[in-house]
Write a protein that binds this DNA or RNA. Structure first.
Lengths: 227, 227
DNA sequence: TAGATTGTTAATCGATTAACAATC
DNA sequence: TAGATTGTTAATCGATTAACAATC
């Protein structure tokens, strides 16, 4: 379920601030979603709540971590170390529990040999050799669109099981490989669409939420509207 | 509709390569979606197709551009010019038709006064003064999570009608302001979830598509699976 | 006319939500 | 026991898709 990572982050903050138990109503408020939805989402993991008092925050967090596979080790290879690739290599989400940046690649000679957070940037020509010892489970494509399919093909051949693509290009991968796309210009165009269709801004929020109460917008439903 | 930007990009390529007409079946193949869905999406704009032959690519592109508001002028202000902010300021999607990077902000003294693509980076303290002459329609937040809400508040006070938030923090905005969130670590966690639940990779694709045919994965449905 | 393809209907599917019995 | 909150059911809603009459 796409909302588990949101609950995970909220629970992490709660646990760190010393909260012992949390109700679905509280989590819903913080995530900006419906309490029924929170309970439905969490019941997907099993019956971890206690009627009358709520959920044990720490235990729930452990269960979500396990469900998300964050107790595993996912080596991540990033190809294309421009500003975006560099941002990703440095992002907390890419270096935190579960994930490990295992290899970086580019074709720019001045970049090859330099390091980002201790990981050396290799030339794309050395891709197969560089990943052989520590094959990445996840490949991240942050190249220009023209190179994206080629890079994806090499990742797939090297055994990568999932690809996160930031290039504005439709990619083709075999059925066994998971592909997710993030396109920053599409986000901007979705906003443009909503702005054009609501004279005074508006509560469009991707059309995912009721207009008068609750959160506005966002693919992850992270926002809360003020009352 | 969230797929219009995908059709827009595909049509732009088709028109540039000289294609005159395109069928819903062709567009569906290229976008990795169902042909019925394409026709349904396009009929939302009006009846622009011709039975028996398909859609006039150039005319359809014009209509989609208009629907997406790409014939307008959307000034974009970016706060937080780290690697991510810099990548965004340079991204084609942020400088192409419809959008214009109008102002950049950071709090790092060594950055203030430098330029990205000709746009000077101002100190965040000067935000109100800097945007007064050319108020941004869209604000982009690429700051650390701790600063995100503060920046959002200032954007809203300055009249920004939409915010694109890249910080891993739930933001609160008034009901009239459109908020969209992009969280890179959530994308990774979604992948981790699917990898943990499918021993041999798998065609999970966000669970949005049938397993044996058609596209895999991605919030935008950009991918095509090989047959 | 024959073939192709749209636009739209109706069926299906899955996600969301309110409601409430179960129960701490 | 009384109050609170879960887990789950059933209703609702919207999105997807197959099918096909309309029509170029």
């Amino acid at each position: 379920m796409a909302r588990l990572p949101i609950y995970q982050r909220l629970l992490l903050e709660l646990v760190r601030s010393g909260t012992r138990t949390v109700s679905s109503e509280q989590l819903a408020q913080m995530a900006g979603v419906n309490a029924s939805k929170v309970r439905k989402d969490l019941s997907f993991l099993g019956s971890f709540g206690t009627r009358g008092s709520g959920y044990d925050a720490e235990y729930l967090l452990t269960q979500i971590d396990r469900e998300l596979g964050l107790d595993g080790d996912w080596p991540v290879a990033i190809v294309g170390i421009g500003n975006l690739g560099r941002a990703l290599a440095n992002a907390p989400g890419f270096t935190s529990r579960g994930f490990r940046v295992s290899a970086l690649f580019d074709v720019e000679p001045s970049l090859v040999g330099t390091r980002v957070r201790g990981v050396p940037i290799c030339h794309l020509d050395e891709f197969e050799a560089a990943v052989a010892a520590d094959p990445p489970a996840i490949g991240v494509i942050a190249t220009p669109p023209a190179d994206a399919q080629h890079v994806a093909d090499r990742m797939v051949r090297a055994g990568t099981r999932a690809i996160l693509n930031f290039a504005s290009r439709v990619l083709t991968v075999p059925a066994g490989v998971l592909l997710r796309n993030v396109d920053l210009s599409i986000e901007l165009q979705v906003i443009s669409f909503h702005l054009s269709h609501h004279e005074e801004g508006g509560d469009a929020g991707g059309g995912l939420v009721p207009p008068t109460v609750g959160p506005v917008g966002g693919p992850y439903g992270l926002a809360r509207a003020e009352q």
